[in-house]
Amino acid sequence: MLKFIGKRLLMLIPVLIGVSLIVFTLMQLSPGDPAMIILGAQAAPEDIAILRESMGLNDPLIVQFFRFLLGMFTLDFGTSYKDGMPVLTKLLEALPYTAELTFCAVLLALIIGIPAGIISATRQYSIFDRIASVLALIGFSTPNFWLSIMLILVFSVNLKWLPVSGTGSILHLVLPSIALGVQSAAVFTRMTRSSMLEVLNMDYIRTARAKGLSERVVILKHALKNALIPVITVVGLQIGLLFGGAILTETVFAWPGVGRLMIDSIRAKDTPVVQGGVIFTASIFVFINLLVDILYAYVDPRVKAQYKS
């Protein structure tokens, strides 16, 4: 197992180099001179030239890339063009907010999605199943932005139960978590349902029932464990995606997370922050996938057996 984890961690290096090459190239290809953006339209050309030189923008691209790569491995992503702050500091300031929101949204989605999926599968084509399926479809297709605004209008402006936006208390978390969690809840419901249905038709479930086990034990102990494997994959992917920053939700609810930081930086062509941010979220994505793989081993003994060989 340790060997497996070590191997996966080593694989992080080529992945990150690949990601940084892509980000770096894309940022170079996108038009606009950072020095001009910093100094503005009314600046004198000499001043722009001086700034370009001091920012190292006149060096060959390959030199700039390796400087960036070298910095990355020492966790030095450079400083923001916009405010001169270290990129890492900016990311670490935003990360806790995104983590908090992601955790609450995923928790909410799990609490709704998994039970709804199980009940739907065990009572296929029942009223509950049909309603759950329709709701999941609606939840999946509702535009996040629209849902966020509606939640604010209903619960904050009309009912005055919850604050509109911002951070500070547990109440501030409620609406953004719902807005962000609804889509994941829909995905989890559908995934759990289809996976459960597949498992419930297997021979060993018939055997379990033939043994005279209660339906509860059959479903929760025998079926669920196997049905959860694809669900875990999806949960991992969703967490990774949400960690990348839920740009729309964070913007509507004035939530100071990674998504806001990224979109602001892209708009300002704050290249170091964009590069650092992408690499940062890519690493989190890879890391969560690793956790998912490890989790497989605990859920499914067959996977564990593979690692041993």
């Binding site: 402006v157 005055k160 913007t251 509507v252 004035a254």
Partner: peptide, 18 residues
């Protein structure tokens, strides 16, 4: 000074006294 990027949110904050 609160930072509220989305216009619709800003209006809701103004309406509710946020």
């Amino acid at each position: 000074i609160r930072i509220i990027p989305e216009g619709a949110t800003m209006m809701a904050e103004l309406q509710t006294g946020g």
